[in-house]
Amino acid sequence: MVTERSMTARLFNGLNLLVLIVLMLLCLLPVWYTLSVSLSDKASAAAGQVFLWPRGFTWGSYETIMKDDQFFRSFWISIQRVVCGAAIAFFVILLMAYPLSKTSKDFKPRNIIMWLLVFAMLFNGGLVPWYLTMQSLGMINNIWGLVLGGGLPVFNVILVMNYLRNMPKEMEESAMIDGAGPWRILFSVCLPLSVPVLATIMVFTIVYHWNEFFQALVLMNKADHYPLQSYIRQVAVVIDPTKMDEETVKRMSELSNQTLNAAKIFISMLPLLVIYPFLQKYFVKGITLGSVKG
C-alpha cells in the first residue's frame, strides 16, 4: 500500500521533472538556434540545414562585425540610451509614486492624477502629431528623443506606487515623529525599502530601451544615430516585394546573409541575457509586491 503510493508519487515526480526540463530547454532554443546559425557557413544557413548545431563552423560573421564601425557606434548609442533612460525613469518615477501612494484624504488631487495617468496610457494622438511634437521640442537626431520620446512610463509608476502603498505605515510614522519632512522620508525611509520594486522597473526600463527600434527610425535622420536594434533591423530587414524596384532587387539578393545577421542578433541579445540573472531576485520580489499584496 505504502510502496504503491510512493511508486505513483515517484512516477509523478519523475514525469513532472521531465516536463519542466523540456520547458526549460524550449526556452533556451532561440538563443541556441541563433548562435548555431551565426557560426555556420553562409551556404548551409541559406539552404536551411542549420538547426541545433552549426554546419561548416566559422567565426567569419563575428570577424566581419569586429570590422563594422557602425555596429559599435550603435552599440554605444544603445548603452547611452539605456543608462540615461534608466536614470531619468528612476528619479521621476520615485518622486511621482510617493505622493500618489498616499490616500486621497492625505493628498487631495491624488485620484484625479491617477486617472489622468491611466488616460494617457490608453490614448494617443497617432504617429504624425507625436513626430511634430518631437520636432518642436528639438528631439530630432539626438539621444534625448529616444530617452524621453516614449513618454512617462505610466505602468511603472503604478507599480512603484502600489509597492509604496503596501509598505508598513509604522516606519513612516515614526520618522515623522522624529520630525522628518517628506523628502527625508522618501529618500531615507521609502527608498531603501523599495529597492526590489525599483530594481524591477529598472529591468523593465532597460529591456524596453534596449529592444525598442521603431522610434529611432522616425526620429533619427541618419543611420549614424541609430541604436543597436534599429541598426540590426535595417540590415536584417524583411522587404516588401510589392514595391519592387531595382534597389529592392539588389537588397533581396543580400538577404541570404543570414549568418551575419544571426551574429548581430546574438551579440545584441547578449547584454540583457548576461545581466538579468543577477537582477532576478530583485524583480521577482518587486513584481510580486508591486502588483498584488503578498
Binding site: 494617457a120 490614448f123 494617443n124 494622438g125 497617432g126 504624425v128 502629431p129 507625436w130 511634430l132 511634437t133 521640442l137 524621453l148 520620446g149 516614449g150 513618454g151 512617462l152 505610466v154
Partner: peptide, 10 residues
C-alpha cells in the same frame, strides 16, 4: 509634453 500634448491628433 510627450503623452498629452500630441493627443490633439485624435
Amino acid at each position: 509634453l510627450f503623452n498629452l500634448y500630441p493627443m490633439y491628433g485624435v
